[in-house]
């Protein structure tokens, strides 16, 4: 779903694919700065999922809600104080704040590790394994991937393995295995489609049990 501005606040509504898109961000920033609740809501609605995803991807799920909340607090405070000098660059600003949050969190973790190791080496020992639910999901994904890989020819499997596991570039693979760029793309897209199809089938089958 693409972000949309609240219809209750006509001032924030913009035409789709407007060439003047920066203007929309300016209106949004202005509404937040003036303390309109609609503006805050809209900011949260547009960015909350992406910020959550980004933070979770970089830092893991621990205290995720708090981190998302902190991020929005920083963005809103900066807007209200007028620190956002280019309102049309709101997306970039949010990204910068999120990246700083990630960096700060990593820095804190490093500091904690350094400080607490001297006190007691067992304090920060944590289980890095997946939760049972995550482990089950991972196993399921692996099983689907295995099915997909088994369903393709040995040559095609080699191509996928070279690309995704050995991280060879497309050019290297095509060169070494005598493939055209089109063949390479076609194979990858087929494998992905098969993966999605098998995954959906498995999930659908489980619903009945």
């Amino acid at each position: 779903m693409s972000p949309s501005l609240s219809p209750e606040n006509p001032a924030l509504v913009a035409e789709p694919h407007s060439t003047n898109s920066g203007q929309n961000w300016i209106l949004l920033v202005e509404s937040i700065r003036t303390g309109e609740s609609g503006g805050m809501e809209e900011l949260y609605r547009v960015f909350s999922r992406g910020v959550r995803y980004y933070l979770c991807r970089q830092l893991g799920p621990q205290d995720l809600d708090d981190k998302v909340h902190d991020t929005f607090l920083i963005v809103v405070q900066a807007i209200k104080k007028g620190d956002l000098r280019e309102p049309e660059r709101l997306m970039g600003f949010v990204r910068t704040v999120v990246r700083r949050q990630v960096a700060a969190q990593i820095d804190r973790a490093m500091q904690n590790r350094r400080e607490q190791v001297d006190m007691d080496t067992t304090v920060l020992v944590s289980d890095k394994h997946d939760t049972p639910e995550e482990a089950a999901i991972t196993r399921q994904h692996e099983a689907v991937a295995e099915s997909v890989l088994r369903s393709v020819s040995i040559r095609d499997r080699e191509i996928l393995t070279r690309f995704y596991l050995m991280e060879q570039t497309q050019e290297e693979i095509c060169d070494e295995m005598g493939l055209s760029e089109t063949q390479f793309r076609l194979l990858k897209s087929r494998a992905k489609a098969r993966f999605g199809e098998l995954g959906r089938k498995k999930l659908a089958r489980r619903k009945f049990f």
């Binding site: 991972t138 994904h141 393995t161 596991l165």
Partner: peptide, 15 residues
């Protein structure tokens, strides 16, 4: 990411 991670984990077994 689900696809890439799954292929990365399944490939070594098959190889």
């Amino acid at each position: 990411e689900v696809f890439v991670n799954a292929v990365r984990s399944a490939s070594p077994k098959l190889r």
